[in-house]
Simulated assay, not measured.
Amino acid sequence: MTTTDQMMVWLRETMGAAWSDAEDATPGAWHVTEYTAGSDYGFDAGVGTAPGEVDVVGHGYEGGGCERVQDARHIVRHQPAAVLRRIAADRKMLDLHAIVPDHGRFSERDNCERSGCDGDHWQPPVCRSCRNYAGDPIEAPCPTIENLAEGYGWKGDQ
């Protein structure tokens, strides 16, 4: 398996795991509940599924809550619905920049019959969408996919 293949498998598995985590998390729109300074909770904020609720990240007998309001806001900004939307968009990017056999300027097609190809792919695979200044396809993975993988934590030597 090539490094490009490894990266693509890793990226799809990582997206799948993040998707599952988001689906399994507490559903609903999340809200920040800020506590007044000097409250009995010992925290600046909690996170809940309704204003005033702290059923996602709240105070508990053994602790909990957010030490800083900014932490709670960050958690709310990355609630499950937002994560699912981003992963859905990222998957569209993967499809748009799919790795296909090099059929020259007709490489957006991954079907050899439609491309008039004999099935012998001696050139490295290319990105379905990206082209250089002359209109020729760019070798896979394209910078878009590399940047997407980096955003999910790909380090290139995994």
Rank of each mutant, 00 (worst) to 15 (best):
A81G: 11
D55Q: 04
G52H: 05
I145R: 03
A82D: 03
G60R: 14
R77G: 15
G151P: 02
A89F: 02
G151D: 00
M7T: 09
G64S: 03
A89W: 05
S39A: 15
A25I: 02
V83N: 06
D5F: 00
R77Y: 00
H121S: 11
Q70R: 03
G116A: 02
T4E: 15
Y35R: 13
D118C: 14
H121N: 09
D24S: 14
G38K: 08
E108S: 05
M1I: 05
G63I: 10
T33R: 06
M1W: 12
G58E: 12
T14M: 07
G60A: 13
L94E: 00
A149N: 05
D55H: 04
R109G: 06
D40T: 12
P80H: 09
R91N: 06
L84M: 13
G38D: 05
A17F: 04
C112L: 08
R105Y: 04
G16F: 01
D136Y: 13
E53K: 15
R73E: 15
D55Y: 06
V76N: 01
G64N: 06
M15L: 06
P137W: 08
C66A: 09
E67A: 11
A45V: 02
S115N: 14
W30T: 06
A88Y: 03
S20N: 02
S115F: 12
R109F: 10
A89R: 09
F43E: 15
W30H: 15
A134C: 01
A82Q: 06
V47R: 05
G60E: 14
T144W: 06
D21A: 07
V56L: 12
A149Y: 02
M1K: 08
Q123K: 12
K155F: 02
T3K: 12
V69Y: 10
Y41M: 13
L96P: 00
S20I: 04
C112K: 08
A18K: 15
A18R: 13
C127D: 03
I87E: 04
A50D: 04
D44Y: 02
A37E: 15
D102A: 11
Y61E: 10
G153K: 12
H74C: 09
G153P: 11
I99S: 10
E23R: 12
G38M: 01
P27M: 06
G156Q: 01
A149G: 07
D157M: 12
